[in-house]
């Protein structure tokens, strides 16, 4: 076997890389939620926060790492699912899967797929608008030219169906994370029975914070449109 082949290309390695990229994406979610929460501090504070994110060199580098993390996680997830389907070419006539496992654990490709659809929409609505267009107005505050990203975000949240899609996507993400969080530790080999309960609890609380946190911001600005 060629050196390190097993570390990149084997069933155990694929799980490991799913886990590592998953945990990395989880930390990104926390940062993202943190920035979004600044919206509650008002327009200027939020625009300063996005200005920082758009100009800080470390964040700029991490953007590419993040994109790579997403790609690996998504491509490997699809590949794993295809291999796993092939591993049972003839299925059961009657399967009582609920007797031994949770829906969220069995349907990561569905919850993940929904998040991916949202992610594409999200990139178009925010990332593309913020980075590649001049559609967003600017203004100067304390000598710094700021993009009015606050206006872009808060105005999207005034559209009811966008808010519905947004909230549904974060429910799907919460379901995905509820299994994914503790699953990542198992795949990386960092789990045992002593830690199992705690990891599941932390994972569930974390999933709820992400799902409720992001949704709450959207709903708040829908109910209290910013001027």
């Amino acid at each position: 076997m060629s050196p390190l082949k097993g570390f990149f290309n084997s069933s155990v390695a694929r799980k490991f890389w799913m886990a590592i990229t998953g945990l990395f994406l989880i930390t990104f979610l926390l940062v993202h939620l943190g920035v979004n929460l600044v919206m509650f501090a008002g327009k200027d504070a939020f625009n300063q926060a996005t200005h920082f994110m758009a100009t800080n060199p470390l964040i700029q580098v991490m953007q590419y790492v993040l994109a790579a993390g997403f790609l690996v996680h998504i491509i490997m997830g699809i590949k794993l699912t295809m291999q796993n389907k092939a591993a049972r070419s003839v299925g059961y006539a009657y399967e009582n899967a609920a007797a031994n496992s949770s829906w969220s654990s069995r349907n990561m490709i569905i919850s993940g797929g929904l998040v991916l659809v949202f992610l594409i929409l999200h990139m178009r609505n925010f990332f593309y608008e913020m980075k590649f267009t001049e559609n967003i107005g600017t203004y100067t505050l304390d000598g710094v030219v700021l993009h009015n990203d606050f206006l872009l975000v808060s105005s999207l949240f005034t559209t009811w169906y966008y808010v519905v899609i947004y909230v549904l996507a974060f429910i799907a993400l919460g379901i995905h994370l509820n299994h994914g969080f503790q699953s990542a530790f198992q795949s990386a080999g960092w789990k045992n029975s002593n830690w199992k309960g705690l990891m599941q609890t932390v994972g569930t609380v974390f999933s709820a914070i992400i799902a409720i946190g992001f949704s709450a911001i959207a709903i708040y600005f829908f109910l209290n449109p910013a001027q």
């Binding site: 069933s11 799980k15 796993n84 496992s101 654990s105 795949s187």
Partner: peptide, 14 residues
């Protein structure tokens, strides 16, 4: 040609 584990935990139960 066995599949990849996704940690559903069904095996342990059954």
């Amino acid at each position: 040609g066995f599949g990849n584990c996704t940690n559903t935990g069904a095996c342990e139960v059954e």
